[in-house]
Amino acid sequence: MTAFAHISVRGLTHVFADRRRTLRALSGVDLAVGRGEFVSVIGASGAGKTTLLRAIGGLLRPTSGAILVDGVLPAEAQRRKTIGFVFQEPALLPWRTVIENIRLPIEMNSRGSEARHAEPERLLTAVGLADFRDYHPHQLSGGMKQRVALARALAFDPSVLLMDEPLGALDEMTRTVMRYELLRLWEQSRKTVIFVTHSIPEAVLLSDRVVVMSSQPGRVVDDVAIALPRPRHADVERSQRFFAYADRIMDSLAKGSALAPAAAQAAAGG
């Protein structure tokens, strides 16, 4: 597996240290994600999910461990525009319209036309915002903003998409709708995705694999392959196997945080 992995993480350890304290956020994390695979990372708050994603995306230099994305180091993958990032906060530029926000990453292309990029107008349509092309972020709902953030992350047509709780800030109804839109979008494009979430149903519905992390220090405690057939529809959420997967993940979360059962409860509830 690792030999062909699109993203491979080995022995990843990260320690946040300042003058007063040191915090072991990640401890010996191994993870391999195949090309075109959708992997969810689930774990209690503080389990190091964001730190893991930032390290893979080249935004943070880990204390130790090896990471390869598309065969190169994260920083180089970032330079090659291999990676698209969606954060929990959409962080759109409020003075730019929807289409201008989507275009932003393309403007960053210092090497001119060399890097391939998707047509912004097509992305706009893909995320269902064609009618809102010239709106500004303050005129959009939370779900729409997150769709813009998704389109923006896809602007370079990256082969890897890293998403850090992209639906976390949305209300439950919007979240459910967006979940299926994401599923549809991914089933069309089949990018390599690492998707961080607090929600077990969300992880099971979307993923080929669910990686369960425990906290303090953050490490992988379970890796569950989700063998539900694709394309997946709403009815899959009511199937026996769906519940079986959800139970298994809940158990792993509970086991992983045996010292802090409240945290597992919180994660299971989300």
């Binding site: 080249g58 935004l59 970032q78 525009k81 990032f85 929990q88 906060e89 962080a91 403007e107 960053m108």
Partner: peptide
Amino acid sequence: KPEAHEFFRSVNASNMQTYWK
């Protein structure tokens, strides 16, 4: 905003681009 800055880093923006945009 830290999130906006993080996004600019993620798309490999130069210091100049981060300043102007």
